[in-house]
Computed example of a mutant assay.
Amino acid sequence: MNAEQRVALVQGQLDAYNNRDIDKFCSFYHQDVTAYRLGQDAPFCVGMESFRKIYDDKFKSTPDLHCTLKSRIVLNNKVLDEESVVPSGSHVVAIYEFKDGLIKDIWFAY
């Protein structure tokens, strides 16, 4: 994958997140997606079934959910997004890594 393809995946999932479109959102992620919080020993989510449930619940319970991209860095095989999420007011850095043309691993720092 080249940098443009990685950025397109990350932007696509961000757009689907903001539209709370669970099917479109999940389409950007690998079936074996794993999500981590930096500083934690174990992932908080492993596999598409768990990933879909976490985000479907979030989309349904938070109708005003929106993520604003503050900055983006492409570094080797990773894309790093600095984001602001409302209504929580969270300031987050998400680090995306890729496999088989999809987002495979994601790390969150907040």
Rank of each mutant, 00 (worst) to 15 (best):
M1W: 11
N2F: 02
A3L: 04
E4K: 14
Q5E: 14
V7S: 02
V7E: 10
A8T: 09
L9F: 10
Q11A: 06
G12K: 09
Q13H: 13
L14K: 02
L14R: 09
D15V: 13
Y17W: 15
N19D: 07
N19M: 10
R20A: 03
I22Q: 00
D23T: 10
D23A: 08
K24R: 14
F25L: 05
C26A: 15
F28H: 14
H30I: 10
H30C: 03
H30S: 05
Q31V: 02
Q31F: 05
D32M: 02
D32A: 12
G39W: 10
G39N: 08
D41E: 14
A42Y: 11
A42K: 15
P43K: 12
P43G: 09
P43I: 08
F44M: 04
C45F: 08
C45G: 03
V46I: 14
V46W: 01
G47Y: 08
E49Q: 14
S50T: 09
S50C: 03
R52E: 12
K53Q: 15
K53D: 04
K53E: 15
D56T: 07
D57V: 09
D57T: 13
K60N: 12
S61N: 11
S61V: 01
D64M: 11
D64V: 12
D64S: 15
D64N: 15
L65W: 07
H66D: 00
C67E: 01
C67I: 05
T68A: 14
T68C: 03
L69V: 13
K70Q: 15
V74C: 08
V74I: 15
V74M: 05
L75N: 09
K78P: 01
K78N: 11
K78F: 09
V79S: 06
V79P: 07
L80T: 10
L80C: 07
D81E: 13
E82C: 06
E83N: 11
V85G: 00
V86S: 01
P87Q: 12
S88T: 12
S90R: 08
V92H: 04
V93F: 08
V93W: 06
A94P: 01
Y96V: 03
Y96K: 06
Y96S: 02
Y96H: 06
E97H: 09
E97T: 14
F98H: 08
K99C: 08
D100P: 03
D100W: 02
L102R: 14
L102N: 07
L102F: 15
I103Y: 02
K104F: 13
K104L: 10
D105P: 00
